[in-house]
Simulated assay, not measured.
Amino acid sequence: MWDNPDNLVFTNEVGGHLTHVTVYKNFKRIVKSLGLEEARFHDLRHTYAVASLASGDDYKTVQENLGHQTAAFTLNVYGHVTEKMKEQSAQRMEGFIKGITNL
Score class of each variant (00 low, 15 high):
Met1Pro: 03
Trp2Leu: 15
Trp2Ala: 14
Trp2Cys: 12
Asp3Leu: 00
Asn4Tyr: 02
Asn4Ser: 03
Asn4Ala: 08
Pro5Val: 02
Pro5Ile: 01
Pro5Gln: 04
Asp6Glu: 12
Asn7Ala: 15
Leu8Gln: 08
Leu8Met: 15
Leu8Arg: 14
Val9Tyr: 02
Val9Ser: 00
Phe10Arg: 03
Phe10Pro: 01
Asn12Ile: 07
Asn12Lys: 04
Glu13Pro: 02
Val14Phe: 08
Gly15Cys: 02
Gly15Trp: 03
Gly15Thr: 02
Gly15Val: 05
Gly15Pro: 01
Gly15Gln: 00
Gly16Lys: 08
Gly16Cys: 06
His17Arg: 14
His17Ile: 03
His17Tyr: 10
Leu18Ser: 04
Leu18Ile: 04
Leu18Tyr: 04
Thr19Ser: 15
His20Gln: 14
Val21Asn: 13
Val21Met: 09
Val21Arg: 14
Val21Trp: 11
Val23Glu: 08
Val23Ala: 10
Tyr24Gly: 02
Asn26Arg: 15
Phe27Met: 05
Lys28Glu: 03
Arg29His: 09
Arg29Ala: 05
Ile30Val: 15
Val31His: 02
Val31Cys: 07
Lys32Asn: 15
Leu34Lys: 06
Leu34Gly: 05
Gly35His: 09
Gly35Val: 15
Leu36Gly: 10
Leu36Gln: 12
Glu37Phe: 11
Glu38Pro: 06
Ala39Leu: 15
Ala39Asn: 06
Arg40Ser: 09
Asp43Tyr: 01
Asp43Ser: 08
His46Lys: 07
Thr47Phe: 12
Ala49Cys: 13
Ala49Thr: 07
Ala49Phe: 08
Ala49His: 08
Ala49Leu: 04
Val50Glu: 05
Ala51Phe: 14
Ser52Phe: 04
Ser52Cys: 07
Leu53Trp: 10
Leu53Pro: 07
Ala54His: 09
Ala54Asp: 10
Gly56Arg: 13
Gly56Trp: 12
Asp58Tyr: 08
Tyr59Val: 05
Lys60Arg: 13
Val62Lys: 07
Val62Glu: 06
Glu64Asp: 11
Asn65Trp: 07
Asn65Glu: 13
Leu66Cys: 09
Leu66Met: 10
Gly67Met: 05
His68Trp: 10
Thr70Trp: 08
Thr70Phe: 09
Ala71Thr: 11
Ala72Trp: 05
Ala72Asn: 13
Leu75Ile: 06
Val77Ile: 14
Tyr78Ile: 06
Tyr78Gly: 07
Gly79Met: 04
Gly79Ala: 04
Gly79Thr: 03
His80Thr: 11
Val81Ile: 06
Val81Tyr: 01
Val81His: 08
Thr82Asp: 02
Thr82Leu: 04
Thr82His: 07
Glu83Lys: 15
Glu83Gly: 10
Lys84Gly: 06
Met85Val: 15
Lys86Gln: 08
Glu87Asp: 11
Gln88Lys: 12
Gln88Asn: 14
Ser89His: 02
Ala90Tyr: 00
Ala90Trp: 00
Ala90Thr: 02
Ala90His: 03
Ala90Phe: 01
Arg92Cys: 00
Glu94Tyr: 11
Glu94Trp: 03
Gly95Met: 00
Gly95Ser: 11
Gly95Ile: 01
Gly95Cys: 01
Phe96Ser: 06
Phe96Ala: 08
Phe96Asp: 03
Ile97Ser: 01
Ile97Gln: 00
Lys98Cys: 06
Lys98Phe: 06
Gly99Met: 00
Ile100Cys: 03
Ile100Glu: 00
Ile100Ala: 04
Thr101Ala: 05
Thr101Asp: 15
Leu103Tyr: 01
Leu103Trp: 02
Leu103Gln: 03
